[in-house]
Design a protein around this nucleic acid. Sequence first.
DNA 1: TCCTTCTATGCAACTCGTTGCATAAGGAAG
DNA 2: CTTCCTTATGCAACGAGTTGCATAGAAGGA
Lengths: 189, 189
Amino acid sequence: MALEHAILVSLLEKPGSGYELARRFERSIGYFWTATHQQIYRVLKRMEHDGLLAVREVAQSGRPDKKEYSVAGPGRGALAAWLHEPIEPESLRHDLAVKIRGAAFDDPAALVEEVERHHRAHSDRLAHYLAGERRDFTGPAAPAPLDAGQELQHVVLRGGIAYERMTIDWLDDVLATLRRLRDAPAPAP
Amino acid sequence: MALEHAILVSLLEKPGSGYELARRFERSIGYFWTATHQQIYRVLKRMEHDGLLAVREVAQSGRPDKKEYSVAGPGRGALAAWLHEPIEPESLRHDLAVKIRGAAFDDPAALVEEVERHHRAHSDRLAHYLAGERRDFTGPAAPAPLDAGQELQHVVLRGGIAYERMTIDWLDDVLATLRRLRDAPAPAP
DNA sequence: TCCTTCTATGCAACTCGTTGCATAAGGAAG
DNA sequence: CTTCCTTATGCAACGAGTTGCATAGAAGGA
């Protein structure tokens, strides 16, 4: 049910349509929770039916009409209730780690290219996060002082930055290990 | 389909029953991929039906019989094929981050306890990983030199250790931010 | 003696999430 | 003029994952 809560937070930060939410889930909020537009539309419909959200039909010129969703009173209540109940520390789902352990039963060197691809992807994300941090929080165009909401968004973004930095360092470690296994003769078991 | 591959890797490392796999998914492999016993039993059945796995009924004394699964030829092939096809860099699902952003619309201070709980859980996991590293890879009882499979298991474990260290540092940052927001008067928007 | 825990497997019902497809109007590129 | 991209919403089918429950023998503690 965490998608519901992510939607509530995003709509509290700024009301918007399903389409707009889907795009936010490719950026910002999506760094910590992903969803496709299908899922978002379905959940929005259910949440509106349950009275958590209010809809407003917005006619637009030059583009299709949209339904703008905003959080209703019970939606705020549902979010508050969730915030006060404890959640389990998340567990990772890291398929690359599975692949690396699997490489022992195949050719470890064949993974080098794949790991390099991931390395580039994480470097790109890091650059993107750092640009966002300068733009919204630490650069000259950023508001000062920050309000509570911005402070919290910033600390979450710092988590994303720390995650990408850690991952990049680890992928360097993985690459060094794969290359060592490729170049060194395998020791007898 | 990544659960299939995680199961293949785990069974190649050591054949075992569904029950044993479920316990491995609470430790070792489960640090990077989680699954309940229901899912494991269902997927094992399907994989056996598809010819990826072989089963052997093992009678035991003093406990129920078990079905020991091992990887069949086509299973090895399926794993190799997966290893050679590129996968998308994973995206996080971090509900605590959603909660932190949501705290802007509730009481940020109310999250302190929850974040401290997560801090303790991650510290415990880190201690657990470090103990495993000493036992299997760096301590006096560890084999030397390590073979390729052990080197790869070690680099994956180093990733888990780096992740926990990074998370603990970030949670310290989160706690400092929450306490600052609690103690400082909110600046006018 | 009863109650719980451990080993071991499984069904049924449900929600969550993905993939493929469909529609429809406007604008930009070729 | 056609093709592609963007905005905007949605259905249908499937696969992934969770939750609750059931069974059953052996061991161990209250």
